[in-house]
Simulated assay, not measured.
Amino acid sequence: MQQHYVERDATEAVVAAQWSRVLGHPPASLDTDFFAAGGTSLLAAKLVSALRGALGTQLPLKAVFEAPTFRGLSTRIREGGSSPHTRVLTLNAFGRGTPLLLVPAASGGVVGLHRLGGAPIDRPVLGLQARGLDPADGAPCATLDDIVDDFATVLEKAEAPRSLHLAGYCVGGILAYELACELDRRGWDVRSVVLLNTSLYCPPLEAADGAREKLRSIVDEAGLTVPEGEEPDTVSVFRLLTSDDADTLESDFAQFEARLKVFGSVGAAISGYVPRQVVFPVRLFSTDDRDDPADVERTPHEVTDWPDLGLPDFWQHHVPVDHFEMIAHEPTLRAVEEVLTELDDR
């Protein structure tokens, strides 16, 4: 299992990314103290400067001294109105390489991906967030084409850099691959697509069934008790989460329900996916457990794996840890940066 704290929202993802970049390691828990973890006054100034660049805000230096824990600093940013309420999120504003765009997986956001915004990734890092994750955006996109068109339009409106590497973890790799195709069609310079343990076993799934699967996983991960013989429902699980003593940011039912709907919509959108041929470089970082046996069993169509597609510029890197550990695995992060740097130098 992962040996680091997993952030809970976009604000914590940004803080964790810059914390990792400044100190060389992510926060170990919500209550990790910046100074106890190796921070100094000079490093506090560097952290604030990095957060200002990522958040586009004038965060005061005293914020780190007044709220030195990961929880405290993240809360200070939220309460100060600097939380990144945007579809295109900046995890890191600085670096030498071509910018990297992180495309969300089934969760619809950047939660869990903060290490790709921190050291050793030496380039600006952007993160996309799916439509519907914020209830004010409206319903999530229903098809893969809709998701891709929406992402491309959001990037154009945000005036994102027109030359990009794209990366996606798990099913996010499929979204990154298809988004790269669309951006290439629109004239963007797609430098590469990095697939982080992306499987091509995509069994049939209805959006409502995907949302129920996510709800059951939330129940299991939170250790909640559901009456025997009953299926968890959204309202009861939300009540259990908000009444439990566990650390949670769940406070708005509409946002909680929206998160489930996004998960279900992404799962339904990639059902039966078969990739097309592309001309840009594709790099696959793969663990031994990349293909979920349950997904393999439920996928009715014949699957041709990435290495067998005959892509003109393809390379696969074996990752010696499991699916959940890889996005915090320091050697893998270094290998990703080395691949991106090599492609930049072409």
Results as ranks from 00 to 15, higher is better:
1 M>T: 14
2 Q>N: 14
2 Q>P: 14
3 Q>N: 11
5 Y>G: 08
6 V>Q: 15
10 A>P: 02
23 L>N: 02
24 G>K: 06
32 T>G: 12
33 D>G: 14
40 T>E: 05
43 L>N: 10
61 L>H: 06
63 A>L: 13
71 R>P: 14
75 T>M: 07
79 E>Q: 11
80 G>P: 13
88 V>Y: 00
94 F>R: 11
97 G>R: 00
100 L>W: 12
102 L>E: 05
104 P>N: 01
104 P>D: 01
106 A>L: 04
112 G>F: 10
117 G>D: 09
120 P>S: 04
126 L>I: 05
134 D>S: 10
142 A>G: 02
145 D>N: 14
149 D>W: 09
151 F>C: 02
168 G>P: 06
169 Y>L: 11
171 V>C: 08
172 G>W: 08
176 A>Y: 05
177 Y>K: 03
179 L>E: 09
180 A>P: 05
182 E>R: 15
184 D>H: 14
186 R>M: 08
187 G>S: 09
189 D>P: 10
192 S>F: 05
193 V>K: 01
202 C>M: 04
208 A>C: 02
208 A>N: 00
211 A>V: 01
215 L>S: 10
218 I>F: 10
224 L>S: 08
229 G>L: 02
229 G>A: 04
232 P>C: 11
242 T>D: 03
243 S>N: 07
247 D>N: 14
254 A>S: 15
256 F>Y: 04
256 F>S: 04
256 F>H: 02
256 F>G: 06
259 R>W: 09
260 L>C: 14
261 K>M: 09
262 V>A: 00
262 V>C: 05
268 A>N: 11
275 P>Q: 07
276 R>L: 12
278 V>A: 04
279 V>P: 07
281 P>A: 06
282 V>Y: 06
286 S>V: 13
286 S>A: 10
291 D>W: 04
292 D>C: 08
293 P>V: 07
294 A>S: 13
300 P>D: 02
301 H>N: 15
302 E>A: 15
303 V>T: 07
306 W>Y: 12
308 D>N: 13
311 L>R: 09
311 L>I: 05
311 L>M: 07
314 F>W: 01
315 W>T: 08
316 Q>V: 10
316 Q>P: 05
317 H>A: 08
318 H>W: 07
320 P>H: 03
330 E>C: 12
334 R>K: 13
337 E>R: 04
340 L>G: 06
